[in-house]
Nucleic acid binder design. Structure first.
Length: 188
DNA sequence: TATGAGATCAACT
DNA sequence: GTTGATCTCATAC
């Protein structure tokens, strides 16, 4: 499997996001196939970077190919991959994985849980992989991260993003059509 | 199955 | 002081 390098992310978020579907994300050797992501561009009112740089979102304004991790609703962590070029402040939110590696470890971290729900949602997947704010700003092409390009063709579905209140209608959610591991199914 | 509250924190107003 | 790029559990149909 071919490793994904940093320059993979130096493109439009709307090109990178669908390209990540079917790729494999490992964190300390634990993880699986990416089945769901969302694109956030800094011109998008729903993006954290929309109002300009702050301490929290500083990584989004840096170079592409790095992880942006933030606290959501006070309890969950969410991971984003920074895209485009330095200062463009665009990122892809990783929303769901199909578990393939270290399933026992993920199950232990998440408590007794259905395999289908181990990584089906941004908060769930960070808990399963053990990603926290401590991993903010880490490069995506070096340990503990390991990304593999997808092999073969995939059927990609798009739809409106989830859990936001602004720019609700933009179809910037991308997923593996008909995967059992999505946080929510795509409307056909 | 579907809806609703609670958890809990940092950025932002 | 308010508000989320969420999840889980409880209660109601």
């Amino acid at each position: 499997m071919a490793l994904i390098r940093r320059d993979f992310f130096a493109r439009s978020v709307h090109a990178v996001a669908p390209d990540l579907i079917g790729s494999t994300l490992l964190f300390n050797g634990v993880g699986g196939r990416i089945v769901e992501v969302e694109a956030y561009h800094h011109t998008d009112p729903a993006a954290h970077s929309f109002r300009g740089p702050t301490e929290r979102n500083a990584v989004m304004f840096g170079p592409p190919g790095f992880a942006y991790v933030y606290r959501s609703y006070g309890i969950h962590w969410c991971v984003n991959f920074v895209c485009e070029r330095e200062g463009s402040a665009s990122a892809v939110l990783i929303r769901a994985l199909e578990p393939t590696q270290g399933i026992a470890k993920m199950r232990r971290r998440r408590g007794l849980s259905d395999e289908r729900l181990l990584c089906a949602g941004p908060g769930r997947l960070t808990e399963a992989l053990g990603i926290t704010r401590a991993h903010n700003a880490l490069p995506l092409d070096a340990p503990p991260f390991e990304l593999h390009r997808r092999t073969g063709r995939v059927q990609i579905a798009t739809g409106p993003r989830i859990g936001i209140t602004k720019a609700v209608d933009h179809p910037w959610r991308y997923g593996l059509a008909a995967s059992r591991f999505l946080s929510k199914p795509f409307r056909v």
